[in-house]
Computed example of a mutant assay.
Amino acid sequence: MNNPFSLENKTVLITGASSGIGKSVSIECAKMGAKVIITGRNENRLKDTFNELEGDGHNMIVADLSNMNDIKELANECSKLDGISHNAGIAKIVPVKFVNKDDLDNILFTNATGPIFLTQMLLRSKKIKNNASVVFTSSLSGIYCVHYGESMYAASKGALSGFAKGAALELAAQGIRVNCVNPSIIQTHIFETTGVLSDEELKEKIKNYPLRRLGVPTDVSYAIIYFLSDASSWVTGNDLKIDGGYTLI
């Protein structure tokens, strides 16, 4: 039986694959039959992800996507792609009065400028096939809402979603689709072990979600698989909220 969500015979590049959402996307894409090229800056953690991949024909490339030279090398090393899942990103909570150039430059480059130039370089070198799919992991923040101290992060994600819409329009003639997923808080191993929120704070936070839980990485990776697959062949230029109903309240 034909499965429109299958990624068989597709090659997908996944950034930020050493942890969190990027790791989940890598593992789930491989389960769906894709050959995946995973990249991240931490070689040991990237190897851990690689060892969890089902199937054969996968590849890993260590690269720091806050470094333009690494972006160029990654673009050069990639084979032809049917899909890209951009997940590398950072955040820092800083009130507007204390925003500084170093933090702003770092957040904007890692979250927006780097993914934009990687996409551009892959296009110029004809590494992205016609009818391919590009998916950016954006955020609720900067598109649908924002929290105190998130102005720099929101700016970076707003820029990413804006770029995706422009790219979707320009690349439609080649059948290349460009979409964003926009998750709210996602519980990853790092989130759980760094003590960002106490148990009591976590219980209070969950009250803001009508579905009464925070997200988990597969909530996002399954949505990304939808955009990478032929099931979304008539969908481009979208921001998809993945928020457990958070923005309904």
Rank of each mutant, 00 (worst) to 15 (best):
L202A: 07
L140F: 04
A167T: 06
Y226M: 03
G162M: 09
E43I: 10
V96G: 12
D64G: 04
P4C: 06
N59L: 15
K207C: 03
T110W: 00
D219K: 14
D103A: 02
N208R: 14
Y148Q: 12
R177L: 01
L46S: 00
A168H: 01
G33P: 10
G142M: 03
L240E: 10
I84F: 13
R45D: 14
K10Q: 06
S24P: 02
S79F: 14
I71H: 11
K72F: 15
G237C: 08
V62T: 12
S221Q: 05
N9D: 13
A223D: 13
T193S: 15
T236R: 00
T113V: 14
V12L: 01
L53Y: 02
F191N: 13
M32S: 05
T194V: 09
F98G: 03
M121P: 00
I61S: 07
D103I: 06
K205N: 12
A132Q: 00
Q120V: 12
K126G: 00
I224P: 03
N42E: 11
K47E: 13
A155M: 08
F117T: 10
D230I: 07
H189D: 15
C180H: 10
D243Y: 00
E54D: 14
K101D: 15
V181L: 14
A159N: 04
G22F: 02
S229Q: 06
K10Y: 06
G142K: 05
N131G: 05
T194Q: 15
V94Q: 08
I14C: 03
C78V: 05
R41A: 12
A168F: 00
K97T: 13
T193C: 08
A172P: 02
F50M: 15
S151M: 12
R45K: 14
N111H: 11
T137C: 11
A112K: 07
G245L: 13
D103N: 05
D56K: 13
E150H: 03
T188M: 10
V235N: 08
S139F: 01
T236D: 07
N238T: 15
V146H: 06
K165C: 04
A91L: 10
E201K: 04
L118F: 00
E192A: 14
M1S: 11
A75K: 01
N67Y: 00
E150S: 09
I27N: 06
N100F: 14
G83E: 01
T137S: 10
V62F: 14
A223P: 04
L74G: 05
I242F: 11
A155D: 04
P210K: 09
P217K: 08
T39R: 05
D64A: 07
F98N: 13
S156L: 04
V12H: 02
S66I: 04
G83S: 02
L211K: 12
S133C: 06
A75Y: 02
E201R: 02
S151F: 09
S138H: 11
E200Y: 11
A75W: 01
I84Q: 01
Y153C: 02
M121A: 04
C29M: 04
K165M: 08
A63M: 03
S19E: 14
I186K: 11
I38P: 00
K92W: 00
C78D: 05
H147N: 05
F5S: 01
S139G: 08
S161Q: 09
